[in-house]
């Protein structure tokens, strides 16, 4: 109940401050551009395999937009409250820390879901002229949604560490890119290390989804990343108790 109250306020704040509109616009323009160029490429050069290939390529590109845009949604969640001091109001209200964290997380996730829902316009338009397979597309959306959820959890954690929003956003982008590129160094490391990095990195798990494969492994991976970062956020909020905020 209280979680939803927090979520509702955060959603309201996203829209009254125009952040949601700006971020959504950039996201839609960029993803629309990728979608258009990829489709043109497929129509002109590949011809076949639009069923899977077009979506694979397009979501591979949209993933990049997601990683660079979501930190701008998450950066304010705790950093702004700390800077304005409003966090003190929440901490002295009859709310549990986890309700505050989950409320904020759900609000951001809802904005992201809305952004994704708007991109569904592209396949709907395509369907008018071309017979589409919905299943691989559904896998793509599920993958992107889960990965976005992980990005948001990471962003919330880093936002809870600072009261400076730019610091929160930049560090989130850094961590997310690192998580993405983690296994791009096969040449250097031994095979065992690469195996581990493969399992840890965002990219390997995401690629399965956009190939049209829904593997329980990958779902569990993203859910664990989300749980891990939300747990760290809880620890970060808890730290006020032994650090003492002046």
């Amino acid at each position: 109940m209280n979680t939803l109250t927090i979520a509702k306020r955060e959603m309201g704040s996203y829209f009254t401050s125009l952040i949601a509109y700006v971020v959504t616009t950039v996201f839609l323009v960029m993803s629309g551009y990728f979608y258009y160029t990829n489709m043109v490429m497929f129509v002109m050069f590949v011809g076949s395999d639009v069923k899977l290939g077009l979506w694979q390529q397009t979501f591979y590109d949209i993933r990049f937009v997601t990683v660079s845009v979501l930190p701008l949604l998450t950066m304010r969640l705790f950093a702004e409250e700390k800077k304005m001091g409003t966090i003190e109001l929440l901490f002295t209200s009859p709310l549990r820390d986890r309700q505050i964290i989950m409320g904020k997380y759900l609000a951001c996730l809802a904005v992201f879901a809305m952004m994704l829902a708007l991109t569904m316009l592209y396949p709907v338009l395509l369907k008018i002229v071309y017979q589409l397979e919905p299943a691989p597309l559904a896998a793509c959306y599920l993958g992107l949604f889960l990965m976005g959820g992980a990005c948001i959890a990471c962003g919330i954690f880093l936002s809870s560490l600072t009261e400076n929003q730019v610091v929160a956003a930049m560090s989130t982008i850094g961590v997310l890119l690192l998580l993405w590129f983690l296994d791009w160094n096969e040449g250097i490391a031994g095979s065992a290390v690469v195996q581990v990095l493969h399992q840890l990195s965002f990219s390997e798990h995401f690629l399965n989804f956009i190939r049209g494969i829904i593997d329980i492994n990958d779902i569990v991976y993203y859910l664990s990343v989300i749980a891990f970062f939300l747990f760290l956020t809880g620890c970060s909020l808890e730290s006020r108790k032994w650090r003492g905020i002046k």
Binding site: G12, S17, T86, E88, L89
Partner: peptide, 24 residues
């Protein structure tokens, strides 16, 4: 609190309504 922190982007009534909800 001392610094009177408030959600500046909310109208007075919505602000109070939010805390009324939080306060159950």
């Amino acid at each position: 609190p001392e610094s009177v922190p408030l959600y500046l982007d909310m109208p007075v009534r919505s602000y109070l309504s939010f805390f009324a909800e939080v306060r159950g």
